[in-house]
Structure formats: structure tokens, C-alpha cells
């Protein structure tokens, strides 16, 4: 198993190292975007699929990472690459801070609570002149970067993030800690009774998930060289994460990869090949979501792997229990 994992990682590294020399500018930008979305989707998957916490507010961590990068680069007057590590730290810090109140909420309350938190932060950022208010922030120190290598560098960073997210998730879920996490998701009372520290485990997963989104968000806005609160706190971030994860197969590592490929293939086909407007792309995306939920509610990957007997990075998931769900029947 470790051999397969290591060879998979090495192959991915070689592929992404060479890709910028083969791909054109447009394709490279598209792949960068896809890898960043994949990173975010895996982070959302970690939280929802493995820890059972469905977040509607992960855009706040995307924004936190991006603002940390832009503000720090300007304040320290250094190349944005140097302050990139601050992005996941800022998102993690914000997550740790808000976890305390949010973790008192269960199920749908948590989902809506974190969305409201994100909206509060968004409004405060939009009102504050420190963060550029509604106008947003330009990347003041962009001249310190080597612009010839700008696109390839971003692609490489995005590759590292996506690879780290996926491989890290695999290792994490195979570890004892991961088993603890999944036991909490499947039955928190039972997990607690065998000594799993539920709140601590949830907190760790939540913070990791936020940090990953912060890093990916920072790179995304770094490539734009400009940051506006409307796009940073856009609820589409979390909607896309959710669509990709649930369509692909929540609680699997392969699912979000399938979901991301489908997501971008659909967009390129509808808006590129067919030349239709973005609205029709959304119609197509919605239809895929509805169709998948009707014919394979657990997502595409579990259906496909069951049919063809495929297993690459199997880490299973059961549906989270809703506290409000029907009581189980006896016998």
C-alpha cells in the first residue's frame, strides 16, 4: 500500500513539474483553478464527510487566507510568495477562535451558524477602511515577483496544495486519529464512551479544513492580483465545494477528484464548446446534481467503484446521524 501511495505521489509530482512546459497559458490557468478548487473540496470533504460537520460558511476561510496574504505582503513590503504561509495560519486562527461558540450548535444549526458568521465577517470587512472596504485591495508588491514564471509557479503551488490535501487526508484517515474522527461521525456517544475526545478531534479537523481553504483561497486571489470582498466572501465558494464533494461522493477521497473534473468539464463544454451563456452552465450543473442525487444519492464514485470494483484510496463513510432523524426501529 505504501508503495502504491509513494509511486502515486511521485507520478503526480513529475506530471505537475512538467505540465507548465507542455500546456498553453489558458490551459495552465484552468488547471491551477481546478487544483485549488479540488483542495478546497477535499477540505470541505474532510469536515463534512469524515467529521460530520456540514459547513455553509467555508468562504470565510477562503477570504481570511486571501486577506492575510494581501495585507501582510503590503505591510512587510515583501514578495507575496514569502507571506503565503501566513494565509493558512490566519484561516486556522479564525477557525480556532470561532469554533468555541459554533461547536455548541448541532447539525443544521451549525451549518447556518457558520454561514451567518461568514456574513458578519464579510460585512465588517466591507465596512472597514483597513481592508479596503467595498473597493477591495490591489496586490501592492506584485512587482517583486518574477512575472515570467508567475503562472507556472502558481500552478506548482496549486499542485502541491491539492496533492497535500488528498494524500494528507488519506494518511490522516488511516491513522488512529482518523479512526477516532470517523467513530465520532458514526456515533459520537459510543466514541466518547471508549475515550475519544470528541470536541478536541472536531476542533483539529475544523482547523485543518479552514487552513487548507485559506491557503487555496490566497493562491486563487494571488493569481488575480486583486481582492474584492464580494468575490472573497462569495457563497459560491462553499456551494461549489459542496456540489463537487456530494456529486463525486462524500466521504471518499476519489469522489472530489471526479467531482472537480466533472465540474470543469461541464463548464468548458457548455460555455466553450457549445458557446452557451454561464446561466446554462449553471442549469447543467444543477441538473447533474439533481440527477446524481436521484439515481445515486451517495455520489458518483461509490456507484462507479461498486460497478467496476475499483478501489484506490478507500476510506469508507457512513451517513451522519441527524439528531432530528427518526428514531431507529427495534429488532
Amino acid at each position: 500500500m505504501h508503495l502504491r501511495l509513494v509511486s502515486g505521489v511521485v507520478a503526480s509530482i513529475l506530471l505537475s513539474a512538467g505540465a507548465p512546459f507542455v500546456l498553453g497559458d489558458g490551459a495552465l490557468r484552468l488547471w491551477t483553478e481546478a487544483l485549488l478548487i479540488l483542495t478546497m473540496a477535499q477540505m470541505w470533504n474532510l469536515l463534512a464527510g469524515y467529521a460530520g460537520l456540514v459547513s455553509f460558511g467555508h468562504q470565510v476561510f477562503v477570504a481570511a487566507g486571501a486577506y492575510a496574504l494581501f495585507l501582510a505582503a503590503e505591510a512587510l513590503n515583501v514578495s507575496p510568495y514569502w507571506v503565503l504561509p501566513l494565509a493558512p495560519l490566519a484561516a486556522a486562527f479564525l477557525a480556532a477562535l470561532v469554533a468555541l461558540p459554533l461547536f455548541r450548535l448541532r447539525d443544521a444549526y451549525f451549518s447556518i451558524g457558520i454561514w451567518v458568521f461568514s456574513e458578519i465577517v464579510a460585512t465588517l470587512v466591507t465596512k472597514s477602511s483597513l481592508t479596503g472596504a467595498t473597493a477591495g485591495l490591489p496586490l501592492k508588491t506584485s512587482s517583486l515577483m518574477d512575472l515570467d514564471w508567475f503562472e507556472p509557479t502558481l500552478f506548482w503551488i496549486a499542485s502541491v496544495l491539492a496533492l497535500a490535501a488528498t494524500a494528507g487526508l488519506l494518511l490522516l484517515m488511516r491513522s488512529e486519529f482518523g479512526l477516532g474522527i470517523m467513530s465520532v461521525r458514526d456515533n459520537d456517544v459510543a466514541a466518547m464512551s471508549v475515550g475519544v475526545d470528541v470536541q478536541r478531534n472536531r476542533l483539529i479537523v475544523f482547523v485543518i479544513s479552514a487552513a487548507g481553504c485559506g491557503a487555496a483561497g490566497a493562491v486563487n486571489f494571488l493569481s488575480n492580483l486583486y481582492l474584492s470582498p464580494a468575490s472573497a466572501f462569495d457563497v459560491s465558494w462553499v456551494v461549489n465545494m459542496m456540489f463537487i464533494v456530494v456529486i463525486g461522493g462524500i466521504g471518499t477521497l476519489e469522489g472530489p477528484i471526479i467531482g472537480t473534473l466533472l465540474f470543469f468539464a461541464l463548464r468548458e463544454i457548455v460555455t466553450g464548446q457549445l458557446g452557451l451563456s454561464g446561466g446554462w452552465y449553471l442549469v447543467a450543473l444543477g441538473s447533474v446534481a439533481v440527477g446524481t442525487m436521484l439515481w445515486s444519492p451517495r455520489g458518483l464514485w461509490p456507484a462507479l467503484s461498486a460497478r467496476w470494483g475499483l478501489r484506490f484510496m478507500s476510506v469508507e463513510r457512513k451517513a451522519p446521524r441527524l439528531a432530528l432523524q427518526d428514531k431507529p426501529n427495534n429488532d
Binding site: V54, I250, A319
Partner: peptide, 14 residues
């Protein structure tokens, strides 16, 4: 899985 109807209704909304 309660996520199935949730995503479904969001899909319909989009």
C-alpha cells in the same frame, strides 16, 4: 443521508 435531499434542493434552486 440527509445531505442527499439538501443537495438536491440546492440543485433545483440553481
Amino acid at each position: 443521508d440527509p445531505l442527499a435531499p439538501l443537495l438536491l434542493t440546492f440543485g433545483v434552486s440553481i
